[in-house]
Simulated scan of single mutants.
Amino acid sequence: MRRRPNYPAGAVSLIWLVLVGLPLYVMLTATVRSRSDYARNGPLALPEAFTLDNYRGAFDSGFGQYLLNTLLVTVAVVGLVVLLVPPLAYAIVRSRSRITSGVFRLFLLGLAIPAQAVIIPMFYLISQAGLYDNLIGVVLPTAAFCLPVSALVLSGAMRDIPPELYEAMAMDGASPRRMFFRLVLPLSKGGLSTIVVFSALQAWNGFLFPLVLTQSDSTKLITLGLYDFQTEHGINIPGLLAAVVLSMMPVLLVYLFARRALVQGLMGVGGK
């Protein structure tokens, strides 16, 4: 049978392509245009002359230091989450203790508490601990707010492991520790990839904690560094968009390489 072309679907797809592609075109072309060219010809015009001055200006203004600070915070947050969540999820799945169930419910309660509701007590605690205007003061609360979702995702992935595998290893004399390292972790790679990507995105895109808990340029993150392109005389839009492109490239690369594991991990949150 001969298929008829679906013209309405094609038209809708074309409209969607324009809606998605136009902002990307405006952003990418603005980064290689001069500020005068952008102001004179508008955002939709092609560049009069190709230039990388906007990217060089971003690094000259200290944006490289902001990228490094954000990378350090992201690595530290991911490290804490990967260190704490797998043993917690394993205990939640395998333990029948009421204490473990209570701890899991306490973690789930954290899903209902927004960061904005506790930012003032958080500021007080960080200040009293001597961690204000320190990257560690950003790492700790960011990791804490990543733990509930990460524990939920990874425990769901571990519940998908057949109980027969645990019984087989127990019959072979394997200890719970050996089960954790030889069985659970290898079969939970999808969930582990999901919590790594999730916590990395939360740390990289965080704004509230860096805004409230840091002050100096030496501890500034990229989400705050974008304000450097706004002055009392206006906004350097090409420079700002160049900084936005630089800030989103690492996240885009992580998503491209880990998107399949991220989707599979989120689909397995509820278990089988």
Score class of each variant (00 low, 15 high):
4 R>H: 04
9 A>D: 02
10 G>K: 01
13 S>P: 00
15 I>T: 05
19 L>S: 04
23 P>K: 08
27 M>N: 03
30 A>C: 12
45 A>D: 12
48 E>H: 09
54 N>G: 04
58 A>I: 01
61 S>C: 01
61 S>A: 14
62 G>M: 05
64 G>D: 11
65 Q>V: 05
65 Q>W: 10
66 Y>N: 12
72 L>I: 15
75 V>H: 02
77 V>T: 10
78 V>T: 05
83 L>Q: 07
85 V>L: 06
88 L>G: 06
90 Y>P: 00
91 A>K: 03
97 S>L: 10
98 R>D: 10
100 T>A: 14
101 S>A: 14
101 S>N: 12
102 G>S: 13
102 G>Y: 10
103 V>N: 02
104 F>E: 07
107 F>E: 00
111 L>W: 12
114 P>W: 14
115 A>R: 14
119 I>C: 06
120 I>D: 05
121 P>I: 02
128 Q>S: 15
129 A>L: 15
134 N>W: 03
135 L>D: 10
136 I>H: 02
136 I>R: 04
139 V>K: 02
140 L>W: 01
141 P>V: 04
143 A>Y: 00
147 L>H: 04
154 L>T: 11
155 S>Q: 04
157 A>S: 13
165 L>T: 05
167 E>T: 09
168 A>C: 07
170 A>K: 14
172 D>K: 07
172 D>M: 09
175 S>P: 07
177 R>K: 13
179 M>T: 08
180 F>K: 02
182 R>E: 14
184 V>R: 01
186 P>S: 10
186 P>N: 11
187 L>D: 06
189 K>S: 13
192 L>D: 03
193 S>G: 15
194 T>Y: 02
194 T>E: 04
198 F>T: 07
200 A>Q: 03
201 L>R: 04
201 L>C: 06
203 A>W: 04
205 N>C: 09
206 G>T: 13
213 L>F: 08
214 T>R: 03
215 Q>C: 00
218 S>L: 11
219 T>N: 14
220 K>H: 05
221 L>E: 12
222 I>P: 00
224 L>Y: 03
224 L>G: 01
225 G>M: 06
226 L>T: 09
227 Y>K: 09
228 D>V: 08
231 T>Q: 14
233 H>L: 13
234 G>K: 12
237 I>F: 13
238 P>H: 10
245 V>D: 02
250 P>Y: 09
252 L>M: 15
255 Y>I: 15
256 L>V: 10
257 F>I: 10
258 A>Q: 08
259 R>H: 13
259 R>D: 11
259 R>L: 00
260 R>P: 00
261 A>T: 04
264 Q>D: 15
264 Q>T: 11
271 G>R: 10
271 G>T: 06
271 G>W: 14
